[in-house]
Write a protein that binds this DNA or RNA. Structure first.
Lengths: 339, 339
DNA sequence: CTGTTAGCGCTTTCAC
DNA sequence: GTGAAAGCGCTAACAG
């Protein structure tokens, strides 16, 4: 590459052109503190713009000790849920004058560790993690090292977190099925190390209990949040439990279950009801649109960035929960009458 | 945030601990040039590791004039195609010791411009763009400013590009349908500013011509690469042209068309055949698995990174094309006999 | 192979 | 308000 990071116009150039010193230019262009800055400042700013001056983020960051960059860690971006979260974080960060960089680390704890170091090496001012496990070790070390960080979507129950209210979401989903008249309800919960999965089950349980019913372990399948897992678990549940409805703790799982149902000749909505979670864009656009619990990613991301940049250190276990909404669609309906 | 970018251990600390000068340490830790570096070097490296030293990427980048960072620009990450490309680029970059940062810019040309400047402001050593238009203006300015860049997936026919062989892919898709016996084939092409869409149509045309057939404009719909577009176009084609098969230039479009077919009581595979493009993970896991043209993202990303880092400036119009493969699945079958 | 010296581009005291 | 000077942490000449 011929022309790597060769600075085009520097502060020196602007200073020379304006006939002032670099420090004056630096101050005139410093948009952090006061608003207006007198006449010369305005002149300098116009000059800088016309020369095409752009601040060198590295030099600036080196001196300031802060880089205006927020690191985001997600397991994968090919999971639309994570892509949506990142896009929301990117927007929220931008609105505050920050730039978001992302690293992916899969589900491996060692890779998570490595990816975090990589982000920290890039001098990020703080971290948003969507990878938290209930038994997380990484977050402990971040707290010890005093690295500013916020967990999003999933919590370890200790580091500051911004989550969807998963318990309520789980409750809403099952309550919806119960209201339709379903009694044989099974659940595909997702990975048991994720607070989102655990909390959604807890909410589901509450709905059952409230209706004087029970959610036996034999009707719950756990695993990852993948399509395959949904397919496997859905097939297994239909074959062994034959439920009239399935609540999947994630839209991917629900779509996998949809396929299992289809293979067995069951039509979603009429032969079997299926509820997903997150309301990814695809959910409403499937051949049979999927009932799902909508997660407000923009709100979660906004709150996460605010919390990260607020500067306060919240007490251990501090959590903000954003309320989800159930969106009923064609994949759920009253169960078939026994004939 | 209490403890922003406060360097923990610097070269000075390591130098002091080792009883040598900072430049000695800097050289011992410079993993760019020779391999082994004698005894003291080894000792220094161990010491640095035990002290937990991490090079400050900003200071290093400032001095070196290169930052080991590659900027990636995509329209959106919630499009799985773009997410797959980015994840592949991230891996390919990492394998070469680089870090990939991404920015999203939607389909707006002004936002594309802004996002590019943002990436350039972060001193990236080069850019990979998946946003190229046939009438692109941004790429022109990048060439003028001598910014090292490579286009991926889509080309402007001028800047160096690494693409799937879309013409061949389009040919394979239509050839497959023709071989099954289809004659009434319609096409949903995607955005006409994207070379991928245009080339896939060209390939499709070649297959038609070769079979002594024709692809009239009235059987082609263009628009975006979105699910909605697929739904709209699919519905319209079915209602007006009533084709026995549809080739969609993208899996999203195909899935949208699937919904339109379903709404009209048509079962994919038996009543209507549908082919997609890219073979996203979801394609094989739909209730009716989707026939699709597989795009090898890892190869494309690897070639793009290699080309970017090679340092040569390829001639205008230089393009590498990676061969796709057709994956037949249940969504395509021989047409219904006229009864 | 090692240390000294200078400086990447910017920000920030500190005087004026 | 402005400028001179120092320095963020690191690397690259240049001598030795």
């Amino acid at each position: 590459m011929s022309h790597p990071t060769g600075q085009v116009v520097t502060l020196r150039d602007v200073a020379a052109a304006a006939g002032v010193s670099v420090s004056t230019v630096s101050r005139a262009l410093d948009d952090r503190l006061p608003g207006s800055k007198g006449a010369t400042a305005e002149r300098i700013r116009e000059l800088a713009a016309s020369l095409g001056y752009r601040r060198n983020a590295y030099a600036s960051g080196l001196r300031r000790g802060a880089t205006g960059t927020i690191g985001v860690l997600v397991p994968r971006l090919t999971d639309v849920v994570m892509a949506m979260l990142f896009e929301s974080l990117e927007r929220a960060a931008k609105a505050k004058g920050y730039f978001a960089v992302v690293a992916t680390c899969g589900d491996d704890q060692a890779d998570e560790q490595r990816a975090t170091e990589t982000l920290l090496d890039r001098n990020v001012d703080g971290l948003v993690l969507a990878t938290a496990r209930l038994d997380d070790v990484l977050t402990t070390s971040l707290r010890e090292r005093q690295v500013p960080h916020v967990l999003a979507l999933r919590s370890d129950r200790t580091s500051p977190s911004v989550l969807g209210d998963d318990e309520t979401g789980g409750y809403l989903a099952v309550r919806h099925l119960l209201d339709l008249g379903h009694r044989e309800i099974a659940m595909i919960m997702g990975p048991s190390f994720a607070s989102s999965a655990v909390d959604r089950v807890a909410g589901a349980r509450r709905a059952f209990t409230e209706a004087g019913l029970d959610l036996p372990e034999s009707q719950i399948r756990s695993g990852s949040y993948s399509l395959e897992e949904g397919y496997r678990a859905g097939a297994d549940l239909i074959d062994t439990v034959a439920p009239s409805a399935i609540f999947a703790a994630n839209d991917n799982l629900a779509i996998g279950a949809l396929r299992a149902a289809h293979e067995r000749g069951l039509t979603p909505g009429s032969d079997i009801s299926i509820v997903g979670y997150n309301d990814i864009p695809l959910a409403s656009r499937l051949p049979v649109p999927l009932t799902s619990v909508h997660t407000p990613f923009d709100q979660i991301a906004g709150a996460a960035i605010d919390l990260l940049l607020s500067g306060d250190e919240p007490a251990d276990g501090y959590v903000e929960r954003i309320m989800p909404t159930l969106i009923p669609r064609a994949s759920t309906a009253a169960p078939r009458r026994l004939s």
